[in-house]
Computed example of a mutant assay.
Amino acid sequence: MDTIWKRPDGSIVACTEKIKVLRENLEELRQMAQDAFEDALLMECDENQIRTVFQDLMTGLENPYKQDR
């Protein structure tokens, strides 16, 4: 199922080029994360810990475009 991308106001992002870029970026990110995940498993790291570290990484991303109100 494809993600329906929304703006902060709830309206839908409908531009096909924007959606294409988002899909490509997510696929690249997924593949990079999969590779890193497999590497960590091969180095005998705990699967649950790897997932937690990845989740923390995503949660820690900063929005450089956020406007102070």
Rank of each mutant, 00 (worst) to 15 (best):
M1H: 11
D2W: 06
D2G: 12
D2P: 15
T3S: 02
I4F: 02
I4E: 11
I4Q: 13
R7K: 14
R7N: 15
R7I: 00
P8K: 11
P8M: 04
P8H: 08
P8A: 10
P8T: 03
D9A: 04
G10F: 05
G10I: 02
G10H: 02
S11W: 03
S11D: 11
S11M: 05
I12F: 05
I12T: 15
V13C: 08
V13L: 12
V13H: 06
C15I: 09
C15S: 15
T16W: 09
E17K: 12
K18G: 08
K18R: 15
I19G: 02
I19A: 03
K20R: 15
K20S: 13
V21N: 08
V21L: 12
L22N: 08
L22K: 12
L22I: 14
R23P: 02
R23M: 09
E24Y: 09
E24L: 10
E24P: 01
E24V: 11
E24M: 08
E24C: 03
L26Y: 10
E27Q: 10
E27S: 06
E28Y: 06
E28A: 10
E28F: 11
E28N: 15
E28I: 06
L29S: 10
L29Y: 09
L29F: 12
R30F: 13
R30H: 10
R30A: 09
R30E: 09
R30D: 07
Q31N: 14
Q31V: 01
M32C: 08
M32N: 14
M32V: 13
A33H: 04
A33R: 05
A33F: 08
A33P: 01
A33I: 12
Q34G: 00
Q34N: 08
D35F: 04
A36E: 11
A36I: 03
A36K: 05
A36V: 01
F37S: 02
F37W: 05
F37P: 01
E38D: 09
E38G: 00
E38T: 13
D39L: 15
A40R: 04
A40G: 07
A40Q: 04
L41C: 07
L41Y: 00
L42I: 01
M43C: 07
E44F: 00
C45H: 09
C45R: 12
C45Y: 11
C45P: 00
D46M: 05
D46Y: 04
D46N: 14
E47P: 05
E47A: 07
E47L: 00
N48E: 12
Q49N: 11
Q49Y: 04
Q49D: 15
Q49T: 14
I50R: 05
R51L: 14
R51N: 06
R51K: 14
T52S: 10
T52C: 01
T52I: 00
T52F: 02
V53Y: 03
V53R: 08
V53W: 02
F54Q: 06
F54I: 12
F54K: 01
Q55F: 08
Q55C: 10
Q55Y: 10
D56G: 05
L57M: 11
L57Q: 06
L57P: 00
M58E: 03
T59C: 09
T59A: 15
T59F: 12
G60A: 09
L61Y: 09
L61P: 01
L61G: 03
P64Q: 07
P64H: 07
P64W: 07
Y65W: 11
Y65V: 03
K66V: 04
K66Q: 08
Q67W: 00
Q67G: 01
Q67Y: 01
Q67V: 14
Q67T: 07
D68N: 12
D68W: 06
R69G: 11
R69H: 06
R69A: 14
